[in-house]
């Protein structure tokens, strides 16, 4: 803000052609100097992020693919294995079960998460005092700020078959005690519920934002035309909300495919392998059994799965998502 006094333009006619030219030249010089300064500044500003991303994300992706073609236990030198790791994990029952478990978990968790979030977001958006709305909104997104690992420790008590409050609560409405953590289906259900409990607030926030973007007039017009509650929501709210639904489901699926803390703490993958997820297998193969090549191969497969599911979703969405 220093050289303000030069700025006020003198009448053009006073200046000679020569001074105008020399001014142009000096301006050009200034611009190139400024361009050089800009590029230097850009390089400095970008360096931490770009170097960091290359070292800690890009190279590791390449590294994962390369490692997946070697057999390596850290102690001995790596040995070329070709696709042997892939052949091995694709016939390994634990790995296959973990993919099955993760997919089952993903379908259940994302469906429940979106359903709860959608119903609650629409309900919260109904008529009520402002303070009440913000109390509800805070309550529903509160679990998001907690540590999944710590809260899973708590969930382990809550889901205990004999002295857990969950079964006690179900008992008060006449439901017989459920073997949450000791049966295969019960364990999966407990992991899903613990996960959904913590995560639905994320979709909820997205839906609340999406609902606020729907013009009020649309609903008013529908009401005047005699559309009732449920029909109005099915016919109007959902289509208008479909871009948000797409985002919520894409992010929900990507996150669900990476589930780790809940099964690790709550069930340790059991009983048997019934709640062992892909990320648990990566962790155990690499850091407990020191089979880095195989673990990398599982990681690469998970990455491919995530990419494929996301791409599929965007393809499908072209038919079902309505942009205003």
């Amino acid at each position: 803000m220093t050289n303000t006094e030069i700025r006020p333009a003198r009448p053009e006619s006073v200046r000679t052609r020569k001074t105008r030219q020399s001014r142009k030249a000096s301006e050009r010089a200034a611009t190139t100097a400024r361009g050089r300064g800009t590029r230097l500044l850009a390089a400095l500003f970008l360096a931490p992020t770009v170097v960091g991303i290359v070292v800690f994300t890009v190279l590791p992706i390449v590294g994962s693919v390369v490692l997946s073609l070697f057999q390596w236990d850290v102690i001995e030198d790596p040995r070329w294995a070709g696709v042997a790791n892939y052949r091995k994990i694709l016939t390994d029952s634990t790995v296959l079960v973990s993919f099955r478990n993760t997919l089952v978990f993903m379908v259940l968790a994302v469906a429940l998460q979106l359903l709860f979030a959608l119903v609650l977001a629409i309900t919260v958006n109904g008529r009520m005092p402002k303070w009440l709305r913000s109390v509800f909104r805070s309550a529903f997104f509160f679990p998001l700020v907690l540590s999944a690992a710590s809260i899973s420790v708590v969930m382990k008590y809550l889901f205990n078959q004999d002295f857990g409050p969950v079964n006690w609560l179900l008992g008060t409405v006449g439901i017989p005690s459920v073997p949450w953590l000791t049966s295969e289906n019960g364990a999966m259900a407990a992991v899903v519920l613990a996960y959904v409990w913590q995560q639905f607030g994320f979709s909820f926030l997205l839906f609340v934002g999406g609902l606020n973007n729907i013009p009020k007039e649309v609903h008013e017009a529908a009401s005047l035309d005699g559309a009732s509650g449920l029909r109005k929501h099915l016919a109007i709210t959902l289509p208008l909300l479909s871009p948000t639904l797409l985002v919520a489901s894409v992010v929900g699926i990507i996150n669900a495919l990476q589930v780790f803390e809940q099964p690790y703490v709550l069930t340790a993958g059991g009983p048997g392998d019934s709640t062992r997820t892909v990320v648990m297998v990566i962790y155990e193969t690499a850091f407990e059994q020191l089979r880095f090549g195989e673990a990398s191969a599982v990681g690469v497969l998970l990455f491919v799965l995530i990419m494929a599911v996301t791409a599929l979703q965007f393809r499908l969405s072209r038919r079902y998502v309505h942009y205003q």
Binding site: V50, V58, P60, I61, S64, L67, I254, G299, F303, I306
Partner: peptide, 24 residues
């Protein structure tokens, strides 16, 4: 292209790169 690179890494799950990151 640099910005595209940064955006693309948003899609990469941490668990997929953890083994090489650990070795680094």
């Amino acid at each position: 292209p640099l910005f595209a690179l940064v955006l693309a890494t948003m899609m990469v799950p941490l668990q997929v790169t953890i083994v090489p990151v650990f070795l680094e």
